[in-house]
Design a protein around this nucleic acid. Structure first.
Lengths: 207, 207
DNA sequence: TTCAACTTGGAATAAATCTTCCACTTAGTT
DNA sequence: AACTAAGTGGAAGATTTATTCCAAGTTGAA
């Protein structure tokens, strides 16, 4: 067990929460790279405060998004229990993207950047076997072509996400079209080349 | 007619070519945002030289990529003449992406950023009607679902490109899988929502 | 009330890149 | 060879964001 730090002084805890709320809102609009200075100013604190509480951006991201990440993992678990494997897969991808649609920052965390904290890393490690199981079942049921892999599912995720990122500001629902394209494509594509291995998944999400 | 500047002195012209070659190579590897200083150093010149010749990055990009852009426009024209509309569309998208696979910078120019120079803007204006014609023909021939638009084609381009960008360094052919997914998806998807208008195309390419 | 430990604001420093500027060099003409 | 206009290198200043630091302020226990 990691030793638990003593509780924060009341004023410090108040500022911490304030910073978290502020950062979450700013990152939802502007993505993960919001300058610390902007967060501090918007929260009405100084640089000292945010750096003392979150010395690395990773610390801030972990504190901000860990529960959202848990939610997504929960979706994967729920999907894995779905009787119809393909329905589970498409439901999971759609739910995950709906969450990302709420927050640009969360989308970046789940699919871009080596911002990827250990938290996200572990989340992928937990979700990948679930997705792999669903895909295996879907292939067996003839719902997906034989060569389909979890990496192809990840690629579909990245693809739809790129449309979401590009169209957020002027066509916030356009990603749903991209999603139907990606899902229909997975089912019907005759996938060329060697099936990508699982290492591809992490590298795809952390480019 | 724009007044033509007097020809450069021989040494200046030599340096200009050197800068162009160097910039092209660096941008092929690292993308359009290579610092001017890196280009100058790699070319063996000083900052003064690159800034004198290309005061704005736009000037450099235009000089570097205009002929490649013309090539792509040529592909669109060739595709438009294809008898089988769907074959023309998929051939065009694949060719275009193959070119982008050669150069990260060119990929960024064709689909990301407001780096988009006037040059790229005009290129899209010339290609969009050609693509629109192909799509109309493909829909008529029953090769594409009724609601398909040029913006969906652009979205497919962005989608495959995002996989290319993400996987360049470790799986340089993975984008071909994404391409088959996108193409199969376009054919088979039951596209939801209102068909996106043509303004979406530009904004998608210039996010 | 007092006080030690904890917190804070914001100025200072650092690092990366953009951009300007000008004393010095060179090409090409006379 | 001499001269002039064009060209050059690289230092200096401006921006933007990251990061450190500490004098001054605050909390909560004694």
């Amino acid at each position: 067990m990691i030793e638990s730090a003593p509780p924060l002084r009341r004023d410090a805890e108040r500022n911490r929460q304030l910073l978290l709320r502020t950062a979450f809102e700013l990152m939802a609009e502007r993505g993960l790279d919001v300058p610390y200075e902007d967060v501090a100013r918007a929260a009405g604190t100084g640089m000292g405060t945010i750096y003392r509480r979150f010395p690395e951006r990773r610390d801030l991201l972990d504190a901000l998004f860990s529960e959202h990440i848990e939610t997504v993992i929960g979706l994967a678990e729920q999907a894995a229990r779905h009787e119809d494997a393909w329905a589970g897969l498409s439901w999971f991808l759609e739910r995950q993207l709906e969450i990302e649609a709420q927050s640009r920052g969360l989308g970046e965390l789940l699919r871009r950047r080596n911002q990827a904290t250990e938290l996200v890393q572990r989340a992928h490690e937990r979700m990948t076997p679930l997705v792999a199981g669903l895909i295996a079942r879907a292939v067996e049921a003839g719902q997906l072509p034989a060569g389909a892999t979890p990496a192809d599912f990840a690629a579909a995720h990245v693809m739809v996400g790129s449309v979401m990122d590009a169209s957020r500001d002027f066509a916030p629902q356009l990603w749903r079209r991209a999603l139907t394209v990606a899902l229909a494509g997975l089912r019907h594509a005759d996938l060329p080349g060697d099936p990508p291995g699982e290492t591809v998944i992490n590298r795809l999400y952390n480019h």
